[in-house]
Nucleic acid binder design. Sequence first.
DNA 1: CTCAACCTTGACCATATGGTCAGGAAGTGA
DNA 2: TCACTTCCTGACCATATGGTCAAGGTTGAG
Lengths: 216, 216
Amino acid sequence: MTAPERLSKRNVIRQENERLILSAAEKVFAEAGFGGATMQLIADMAGLPKANLHYYFATKEELYRKVVQNIFEIWLHAADVFDNAPGPVEGIGAYIDAKMEISRRHPEGSKVWASEVMHGAPVIQDYLETTLRDWTTGRSQVIQKWIDEGKMDRIDPEHLLYMLWATTQHYADFGHQIETLNGGRRLSEKQWKAAKDSVKQIILRGIGATDGLQGR
Amino acid sequence: MTAPERLSKRNVIRQENERLILSAAEKVFAEAGFGGATMQLIADMAGLPKANLHYYFATKEELYRKVVQNIFEIWLHAADVFDNAPGPVEGIGAYIDAKMEISRRHPEGSKVWASEVMHGAPVIQDYLETTLRDWTTGRSQVIQKWIDEGKMDRIDPEHLLYMLWATTQHYADFGHQIETLNGGRRLSEKQWKAAKDSVKQIILRGIGATDGLQGR
DNA sequence: CTCAACCTTGACCATATGGTCAGGAAGTGA
DNA sequence: TCACTTCCTGACCATATGGTCAAGGTTGAG
C-alpha cells in the first residue's frame, strides 16, 4: 500500500497516533453520524488533545474520508473468495461467511458506510461510480457464467448481490435492534452460527444451487 | 387516532402546519441525519420562519421523535397482510410487496428509522422493547405454525424476518447506491418489478414454499 | 363588537464546535 | 553538541445553531 517507511521513532509515533485516531473516529462516527460526531469526542476517545487531531488530519471531513476509505478496502478484499470458486455454493457461501464475519467483528465500519450512502454518498460518490461499479460488473459476470453453466437458476445477478449485501450488513447496521429483540443480549456463538446458516440456506436454495443442502 | 377535532380555521392551520413541518423534517433528517439536520433547514423547506417551528414543536428532539413515530406506525400497518394469510406464499409474498412499495414511495422514513437504530435507538428504545418485540413474537408464531403445518421448511423465524426487513429496506436505505450502480438513473417501473420478483422468488423458494413458483 | 386565546416572527442570546496558532518539547542527522 | 525538523498543546477565535421572547396580528365565542 504505502511505501515501507523506515521504523524511526517518529514514524512509529505517527503511525500509532493515526491508527489511534482513525479507530476512535470510526467508533464515534458510527455511533453519532458525521454531524453528531465532534472532534472533541474523538479526541477524548483516542486519549489525545483535540489540537493534536488537527495536526494529523487537517479537517473533520478529511478524517471522515479516511475512515470510509478504510472500510471500503476491507469490503473489497472480502470478495476475493468469490472469484476462484467453482460454483455458487462455494463462492456465494464463502462470501456470505466472510461478510457475516465482518458484520460481527467490525460493525462500526458497516454503520459508517451505511450512513454515508444513506446521506447520498457526499464523500465517496466517486468510489461508487468507479471501483464499486467495476466490482459489481465483474461479480455479475461470474454469476451469469454460473447461470449459463446450469449451476443455479436464472436470477438477476444485481438483485442477488443487493440481497447479499442487505442481509449480511443488516446484522451490523441493525445490530442494536437485533440485540434488543434478543432480550438485550448480544448474539451468542451459537446464534451467529444459526444466522449464517439461515442466510446461506435460504439464499443458496433460493437461487437453485441445491448442492449446498446435501453438502452439509 | 386523535380525537376528531372541529374543523375551525385554527384547527386547520395547526393541522396543516404540523403536517408541513413533519414532512420537511422527515426529508431533512433522512438526508442529513439528526446531528446534521438544522431547524433552519427544516424551516426553509417547510416555508416557515424558524421560530414558528418552535411554536409547534418545542425542541428538535420532540420533532424528531414525532417523525420516527410516524414511520413506525406505517410499518406496523404494512404487516396486516401477514396475519390472515393461509400460508407463506401469500403471507410473505404480500409482505414483501408491501414493504418494497414503502421503500419505493417512502424512502425517507426508512432512512430515518435506519439512522435511529444504527445510533443505538436513543429515542425509540422503548418502542423496540415493547411494540416491536410483541410484533416480532406474533409473526414468529405465525411462521412457526406454517412450518408445523408443513407449508415451508424448518427455518428460524426470527432470522427469516431479519432477512425480509434487510432486503426490502435495502432498496430505500441504499437507494442512492443502487441508483449509482444503475448508471445514475432511478429504477424504472420494470426494474422495480424485477426487484420485487427476485426477492420473492429467492426467499419463497429458499424457505421451501414452492407453490409460489408454479403459481405464476 | 370585544376580549381572550391562539398564531406569527424578527431580533436576540448562550453555547458548542471546527479550526488556528504560537511557542515549547522531543526526536534526528551530522 | 548543534541546527533542523517534527510533534504537541493550551488558549483563542469566528461562526453556526438550538432555543427564547416580546410585540403584533388573527380568530372566534359570547
